Simulated assay, not measured.
Amino acid sequence: MALKHLNLAVPDVAQTVSFFEKYFGFHTDEVKGDNVIAILEDNDGFILSISNFKKDVIPQYPADFHVGFVQKTPEQVMEIYQTMKADGIDVGKEPHNYGGRGTYSFYVTAPGNFLIEVLCVI
């Protein structure tokens, strides 16, 4: 079994879609309404929907909620980090090795105010 679909509720669908397209290689398959929902897909067939069905409600995620994007190498993690940093995104600390499973990663807050972890298992 594999997780192949996720919906994220955000205040600004278009802004969040652009973020996922630019930094994580998603392409937009469809946008419904006036940016009410966008359906994105990556090269592995993962379907990500970005939605804002209630324009007057700002979605809130729990403090520890995050979405992870696994890369194949530490160099790929660093490349994404450096690209985001060069684009003026607050990426926090440089990627580093976390104990336990041995992951090399960094965290960034995405448009929509939720965390993304960019990582590779080493």
Rank of each mutant, 00 (worst) to 15 (best):
L3C: 10
L3E: 08
L3G: 06
K4S: 14
K4W: 11
H5D: 13
L8K: 03
L8W: 06
V13K: 03
A14T: 06
T16L: 05
T16S: 08
F19D: 00
F20N: 03
F20W: 06
E21Y: 01
K22V: 06
F24S: 01
F24P: 03
G25C: 08
G25A: 12
F26W: 07
T28Q: 07
T28A: 07
D29I: 11
D29K: 14
V31Q: 08
N35L: 07
N35Q: 11
I39G: 13
I39P: 10
I39W: 15
L40W: 04
L40H: 05
D42Q: 07
D42C: 07
N43M: 10
N43G: 13
D44H: 13
D44G: 10
D44R: 14
D44S: 12
G45V: 04
G45Q: 04
F46H: 02
F46C: 00
L48D: 01
L48M: 09
F53S: 02
F53W: 06
F53D: 00
K54R: 15
K55F: 12
D56C: 02
V57S: 05
I58K: 09
P59F: 03
Y61R: 01
P62S: 04
P62N: 04
A63V: 12
D64Q: 14
F65D: 11
V70M: 15
V70W: 13
K72W: 09
Q76T: 07
V77K: 02
V77L: 06
M78N: 14
E79T: 08
E79G: 03
I80W: 04
I80P: 05
Y81M: 02
Q82F: 08
T83K: 15
T83C: 10
M84S: 00
A86R: 12
A86I: 04
A86N: 11
D90V: 13
G92S: 03
G92Q: 05
K93P: 07
N97D: 15
N97L: 15
Y98R: 12
Y98L: 13
G99A: 14
G102T: 09
T103P: 08
T103R: 07
Y104P: 01
Y107H: 05
Y107C: 04
T109Y: 01
T109F: 02
P111D: 05
P111N: 07
G112T: 00
G112S: 01
L115I: 11
I116S: 02
C120A: 11
C120N: 06
